[in-house]
């Protein structure tokens, strides 16, 4: 059985600034990192591999330099890496992206059954959390989002039991395979690659698939296939706050004011 894990190379958003004039991201000199949620997805896939002996395939859609992200997954222990890279994939929104990824997974499933697909809950650059569910929809897989614990994967009964981390509560759910999971950071602690694995992965092969391989209608993917586009990016203006109470001399009083305010704005769940 294959476990497919989707990873994305993203700009290190803590280092991204917005050009106040053009309202676009300044990307020059900003290093790329693996989308942090995806590292937990990779770890989960590897745990399935350690436990059940599944093969792990890491896939990513992106420009040729996104290969580095896949190499990282290989260094951690993924068996195979496929980069989906083609000019016609460029400029895609979440819909068009999920189509390409779904097509790639479908293609992989011709080689071996794909039982589980794992994605990070969202990427830190787009923050939409739509691609995972989009893939599940296109593939007609069950989807379990925001997974923070995997309780059981029963390969013979073809079922999976997980816990989902929702606001203020947890949900224990079960679904049949094939399934798509999106995962949160609490799920696990990603493993640190050993030196041997790093060296091994440095010259391991990363397959590159273009649209010639996937054969999708170019009008349904990339910029052309994207019904949404970004019209403006800006840093929100932050209204200057006011000083309340006297924290230096009366910290308790100041804390009381703060708590009252929070209750007033309904920010505290009582």
């Amino acid at each position: 059985m294959l476990v497919v894990v989707c990873v994305k190379q993203v700009p290190d958003t803590t280092q991204v600034q917005i050009d106040p004039v053009t309202n676009t991201l300044i990307r020059e000199g900003v290093p790329f990192i693996v989308n942090p949620y995806d590292t937990h997805a990779v770890e989960q896939a590897l745990r399935f591999k350690d436990r059940y002996g599944c093969r792990v395939v890491a896939i990513s859609m992106g420009p040729p330099n996104a290969e580095a992200t896949l190499r990282k997954a290989l260094a951690q222990g993924a068996d195979r890496a496929v980069l989906l890279s083609d000019r016609v994939f460029g400029g895609a929104d979440t819909l068009a992206t999920s189509k390409v990824l779904a097509a790639a997974i479908e293609r992989l499933s011709k080689e071996d059954e794909v039982g589980v697909v794992i994605c990070g809950k969202q990427t830190i650059d787009g923050d939409t959390a739509q691609v995972g569910p989009g893939i599940a929809t296109r593939l007609n897989f069950a989807q379990l989002t925001l997974v923070d614990r995997v309780d059981e994967l029963d390969l013979s009964a073809r079922r999976i039991k997980v816990s989902r981390k929702l606001e203020g509560r947890h949900e224990h759910v079960e679904a049949p395979l094939p399934v798509l999971l999106t995962v949160v950071r609490e799920l696990n602690r990603p493993r640190y690659p050993t030196v041997a694995m790093r060296l091994e992965s440095a010259d391991a092969k990363v397959e590159v698939w273009d649209n010639g391989v996937l054969g999708l209608d170019v009008n349904t993917i990339g910029l052309k296939g994207s019904p949404t586009w970004v019209s403006r990016i800006f840093s929100p203006e932050r209204a200057k706050g006011e000083m309340l109470g006297d924290g230096a001399h009366d910290p308790e009083g100041a804390a009381q004011i703060l708590i009252d305010k929070m209750i007033e704005k309904d920010l505290l769940a009582l």
Binding site: R189, P190, R191, Y192, P193, T194, A196
Partner: peptide, 15 residues
């Protein structure tokens, strides 16, 4: 660290 990847968890962030 290099062969076993075993170290106190605080160090993962540092690395």
């Amino acid at each position: 660290v290099e062969t076993e990847s075993k170290f106190p968890e605080e160090l993962l962030n540092l690395f």
